[in-house]
């Protein structure tokens, strides 16, 4: 066990945890996205509400929710820790920085994109998760969605946040595989392909939702 503590104290051990929680959160995105596709059904939200009800009441889901929350916390805590520690490594900053000549912007701003995503997440949960779980009266999630995305500002905020999510994953997804030591010649094409689904297609699909409601296509 002491060896394990040592392992998770090492830079590589922490990175592993970072990548692992990141991919775990990605897996949640798939479930979330698949369920939300019900929003596009023209049944005035019946199916979606049933799905929302199931998600809120099923004990298995509720248990997984705790895991998800813990994963998120670990991911965030490690991110902050990493950011703080890495800042200390260079007390005297360079006068000129190379910028994107040597590395992608996405890879350099993942702490920033992550931080903004966190703000988004709080607002997102406040809008949808809290009413669904903690409201005493019966809530139609479908109508909640409909109302929320009627606001242009709120919808725009979503679009920006989803773009950032894509940006965060653009670096994060493949980075996790590098951390696991799997980003070699053999797996790289596969990682890039699946990565594309995560950083482009899924955020795009999510972005379709506010647009769908804002433009009143429901």
């Amino acid at each position: 066990m002491t060896n394990f503590t040592q392992f998770f104290r090492s830079t590589i051990g922490r990175k592993l945890l970072m990548g692992f929680t990141g991919l775990f959160l990605c897996s949640f995105l798939v479930v979330h996205f698949a369920g939300n596709l019900l929003l596009f059904r023209s049944d005035n939200g019946v199916a979606f509400n049933q799905y929302a009800e199931f998600m809120a009441s099923n004990p298995a889901i509720r248990t997984m929710e705790i895991g998800l929350f813990l994963g998120l916390m670990v991911h965030i805590a490690l991110g902050i820790r990493l950011w703080l520690a890495n800042r200390r490594v260079r007390p005297e900053q360079y006068k000129v920085n190379a910028g994107s000549d040597t590395s992608s912007l996405a890879s350099r701003v993942s702490f920033l994109s992550g931080s903004i995503l966190f703000i988004f997440l709080v607002i997102h949960l406040r809008t949808f998760f809290v009413p669904s779980r903690f409201s005493s009266s019966e809530v139609s999630m479908y109508h909640l969605v409909q109302d929320a995305f009627a606001s242009p500002l709120y919808s725009l905020f979503y679009l920006v946040a989803l773009a950032l999510l894509g940006y965060h994953l653009r670096h994060g997804f493949q980075s996790a595989f590098q951390t696991f030591g799997l980003r070699g010649k053999r797996y790289l094409p596969l990682i890039e392909m699946v990565g594309f689904i995560f950083w482009f297609l899924i955020p795009l699909g999510f972005a379709a939702m506010p647009l769908f409601f804002y433009f009143g296509l429901s």
Partner: peptide, 24 residues
């Protein structure tokens, strides 16, 4: 030394062009 966050700037600047696949 700091922790690697896979920006790959090291590979871009290495005078011997050593690959980050070594980090993997």
């Amino acid at each position: 030394f700091g922790s690697c966050s896979n920006t790959y700037a090291c590979e871009a600047e290495c005078p011997k062009e050593i690959s980050v696949s070594n980090i993997a």
